[in-house]
Nucleic acid binder design. Structure first.
Length: 576
DNA sequence: AGGCTGTACTG
DNA sequence: CAGTAC
DNA sequence: GCCT
DNA sequence: AATTG
DNA sequence: CAATT
């Protein structure tokens, strides 16, 4: 194994042999019998010049020569002369690892590096020799380069590199004039494709791969110029790696990514299922596996799924309504109704809108309400208020259904539940309890405004039930009624109100970002507060203090929606 | 290799 | 504990 | 799938 | 990031 | 440095 493959060979490493990584490499070379020299005086005819790969371009020639010469610890010109005189081999340093791995010291054509100096015009023959070398390199590369690139690069590779470079600068320097408008949307195809890929993997249950595509999409969305190649994207943007770069190339060349159009058949079914509340990728996958494609199929084949997870019944019933957006105005009406009833139960309990509403969104997907009582750190107390509140609001006809129950509330909702079970041909599980806890710190509800209070604009749902599933629908289509809305109750301790507001204000992406940031500070952030690793509370009451402790300028809720917090600084998706 | 936000509820 | 949701 |  | 050749 | 985990 440890044969002295470099025996009697001297190596000169350029431009520096004293960087940490090169030192390690040097030790390896010595270990395998080679000798590292630092000085030109030690040069001999068998010496091999090793050059740091970061100074070697795609075509096998030295790039950034001026920088290279400056970094060089030996006199480059003297070296050049010696090299020419003795025809020394100049090789990229990355070969060393291959030699050692293969146990053979063999220099291939593609390893060679040409160091043509711009100054010498009398080296005409040399230049052509060098060119022929690069030609050989390319020829040898063609069979090697495998499925990836399609060998068009062989001609004019130098120009290609230069063009690419100058284009980079153009794009970076003057995106203001044209790109903002003309190029806006130029990356749409890529964005759509990445979005589809994210969705595809999310449906498959591969959350992390899906997340990667989501982040890559975000990078490209923020990219101010048009992306010309996968390699460019990988170089200049974060969260784009080899795999996505390849896909970008394919999309740019063919306009389409194979596998995105066809797979939709399966994907479509999964999507239909998972858009129902309480149906995630796991259930959807399982149902699809059994060739089910509608909820009525499921109810026939797996009735138990609806009994154990009865909230699906309401997900199904309000499938269409719950896909609709809600106006800010309507959010306020919902709040008012809740608030008015709350007053009659406990005037000292406060409720406020959270979620996308506080972030200023024009429309909201659901309505998030946060409850708290001044000086009260007993969430049990609020849990009890919740139960009363839900019961009263149900009696008033405001609450249509609850996806969380207590024993009392199961009684309250008994008729509705029974009706829903029967409607789809199931027996109401009268013996079993549909609740787990008797005091809930949160409630997921379906609520509907009386038209006398507010009438929502009649808009078609973003999602539609299949015909065969419509018999269960309670959605408002074509009726002179408001749609049913998803409304969530959350509560928090008075002492945790800052952290709680932070959590329920979101966005989800913002929460992830700032929690990761906390993690990098060795801290942990949740709706309960900012803690040390050991669990010691640092702050939970004052939202601004939490920002301070994380060394972040306060971000207004309006700026916490998807793209735009991290105000203007580094967070740009453009790499370093 | 291991992380990818952190927590609550259900069965 | 897994699955789902926020 | 990307990052460290 | 840490490890390995 | 590149490849691996």
């Amino acid at each position: 194994m440890n044969s002295k493959i470099f025996l009697n060979t001297k190596f000169l490493i350029l431009p520096n042999s004293n960087t940490t990584s090169i030192e390690i490499l040097s030790e390896l070379i010595r270990k395998f019998g080679g000798e590292i020299i630092e000085d030109l005086e030690d040069l001999d005819k068998n010496t091999v010049i090793l050059i740091n790969d970061s100074y070697i371009g795609d075509s096998g020639s030295l790039i950034q020569q001026d920088l290279f010469r400056r970094e060089c610890h030996v006199n480059f010109t003297t070296l050049e002369d010696f090299v020419h005189a003795n025809e020394l081999q100049i090789v990229r340093v990355s070969c060393v690892s291959r030699w050692i791995k293969q146990g053979a010291f063999q220099i291939l054509g593609e390893d060679l590096v040409s160091i043509i100096s711009d100054t010498g015009e009398e080296h005409g023959s040399q230049t052509s020799t060098d060119n022929s070398i690069t030609d050989i390199i390319i020829d040898e590369n063609v069979p090697d380069s495998e499925a990836e690139t399609e060998g068009n690069i062989e001609l004019e590779s130098f120009e290609d590199v230069e063009n690419r470079n100058s284009m980079q600068y153009e794009h970076i320097n003057e995106p203001l004039i044209e790109s903002s408008y003309i190029n806006l949307g130029k990356n749409d195809v890529l964005i759509k494709a990445l979005n589809l890929l994210a969705k595809k993997y999310r449906l498959k249950g591969d959350q992390f791969r899906a997340r990667s595509y989501t982040l890559a999409k975000a990078s490209i969305e923020k990219c101010p110029y048009k992306i010309e190649s996968g390699a460019q994207a990988q170089r200049e943007l974060t969260n784009i790696g080899l795999s996505i770069a390849k896909k970008i190339d394919i999309i740019l060349k063919t306009g389409i990514l194979p596998g995105l159009e066809e797979v939709n058949l399966v994907e479509r079914k999964l999507d239909y299922f998972t858009n129902c509340h309480a149906v995630g990728s796991y259930k959807a996958k399982r149902w699809e596996l059994f060739k089910l494609s509608s909820f009525s199929d499921v109810v026939t084949r797996f009735p138990d799924d609806f009994i154990t997870d009865w909230t699906m019944l309401f997900g199904w019933s309000y499938y269409e309504d719950w896909s609709k957006r809600i106006s800010r105005e309507e959010c306020e009406c919902h709040l008012k109704i809740v608030k008015d009833t709350l007053k009659t139960i406990d005037p000292s309990c406060h409720v406020e809108l959270q979620g996308s509403y506080v972030r200023g969104s024009e429309t909201c997907g659901d309505i998030d309400l946060l409850f708290y009582k001044q000086y009260c750190d007993d969430t049990k107390e609020i849990g009890i208020i919740f139960e009363k509140l839900v019961r009263l609001l149900f009696r008033k006809g405001f609450i249509q259904c609850s996806l969380m129950l207590t024993s009392k509330l199961q009684e309250t909702f008994k008729d509705i539940l029974r009706e829903r079970f029967q409607k789809c041909g199931l027996k109401y599980p009268s013996g079993s309890s549909l609740f787990a806890s008797d005091i809930n710190k949160k409630y997921y509800l379906g609520t509907k405004l009386p038209t006398s209070v507010y009438k929502a604009r009649d808009e078609p749902p973003l999602l539609k039930l299949k015909e065969c599933d419509k018999y269960m629908s309670l959605s408002s289509s074509r009726k002179n009624e408001n749609p049913c809305r998803r409304l969530d109750f959350f509560c928090c301790k008075w002492s945790e109100i800052g952290a709680a507001r932070m959590q329920w204000t979101g966005s989800g992406e913002f929460n992830r970002w700032i929690r990761l940031l906390a993690d990098k500070h060795g801290l942990k952030l949740s709706q309960h507060g900012l803690f040390t690793r050991e669990g010691e509370l640092l702050e939970s009451y004052d939202e601004r203090k939490i920002f301070q402790l994380l060394h972040v300028d306060y971000v207004k809720p309006e700026l916490r929606s998807e793209g735009l917090w991290q105000q203007d600084e580094t967070k740009g998706m453009i790499k370093k």
